[in-house]
Design a protein around this nucleic acid. Structure first.
Length: 288
DNA sequence: CACTTGACCTGTCCGC
DNA sequence: TGCGGACAGGTCAAGT
């Protein structure tokens, strides 16, 4: 469930919390996929390194280390990156935290930092992965090679947005929105929310979506993602930010997980169907 | 190549 | 109360 706004929220939190700190020790509780690349890598390239930057591309987080290596992390559905400072053990966790005392059963890796704090990579369903790569090789990863443009970048135009969909003319607009090679970072929540905003039925074929509709969808996608970042992301099940706190965008969602409720725009009842292999929430009255 | 479906996992919820 | 099955959804592999 972490989509672009959630990953961006974690990234911003980590920038405040861990940049400049040193990773003293790596504890692997239950190795996530792809980690470590080879025995000894963590000792050689992670331990005693300084954290110099935290970056995001699409739904992928990158933690750049002073050794010239980067921890590349995908949270997939249930991944969390939670920082707990040493002082918090005595004071207890924030009251709105969704996480228990860490590490817990879902903790895959702990990065112990120099001042007693730790960064925990938790992942209940273990779909997430963490790779260790030379920083210079990160752009060569297959995912990075094929992922589409960042929808919130200032130079991402509505013309480019519409053009990127041409390749997927015969699939549905929702399936195309979820395709990371078309546009980066859109997942199930913001696909449904942006299609509601643009009044487009998620089942419509791409080739039947007009230029005017694409223009509106571009605006609404950016609107919902910017609002979601402002609200700290969506905590639908277990997403938390770098401090273990939930995001509040679900309070502002118009259709996602609101099946059976009244559409605020037209008064009809919001439906939930299965489409493109995903739960799909929409208003069949005003999304046409 | 375009497109769809299943696999990967585990915790939760629903019906019996 | 226990238990089986459906469900949650990001990405990739394999299928048509």
């Amino acid at each position: 469930m972490p989509e672009l706004p959630e990953v961006e929220t974690v990234k911003r939190g980590l920038e405040e919390l861990i940049i400049g700190r040193t990773i003293r020790r790596v504890v692997v509780h239950d190795s996530p996929k792809s980690f470590p690349n080879s025995p000894g890598d963590t000792a050689a390239f992670v331990e005693n390194s300084n954290i110099i930057a935290v970056r995001r591309r699409a739904k992928v987080l990158m933690i750049d280390l002073s050794t010239g290596y980067t921890l590349v992390i995908h949270l997939k559905m249930t991944g969390q990156l939670v920082f707990v400072g040493e002082q918090r053990f005595g004071a207890g966790h924030p009251t709105d935290s969704l996480v228990n005392k860490l590490p817990d059963r879902s903790t895959r890796v702990t990065l112990q930092l120099n001042d007693g704090g730790s960064l925990y990579f938790n992942d209940q369903r273990r779909f997430g992965w963490m790779k260790l790569l030379p920083t210079a090789e990160v752009p060569n990863m297959p995912f990075m090679q094929k992922v589409g443009p960042e929808p919130l970048e200032a130079d991402f135009t509505r013309q480019e947005f519409a053009q990127r969909f041409a390749r997927r003319a015969n699939t549905s607009i929702k399936a195309a929105l979820l395709d990371q090679t078309v546009v980066a970072g859109v997942g199930n929540i913001y696909a449904d929310e942006s299609l509601w905003g643009a009044k487009i039925d998620p089942r419509r074929k791409v080739k039947d979506v007009s230029a005017k509709e694409f223009s509106l969808l571009y605006d609404k996608l950016r609107d919902v993602m910017n609002l979601a970042i402002e609200k700290g992301g969506s905590t639908d099940r277990n997403y938390v930010n770098a401090e273990g706190k939930r995001g509040s965008y679900m309070d502002f969602a118009k259709v996602f997980r609101r099946e059976g409720q009244v559409c605020e725009r037209c008064g009809s009842v919001i439906e939930k169907i299965k489409h493109a292999g995903r739960g799909t929430h929409f208003c069949s009255n005003c999304q046409v």
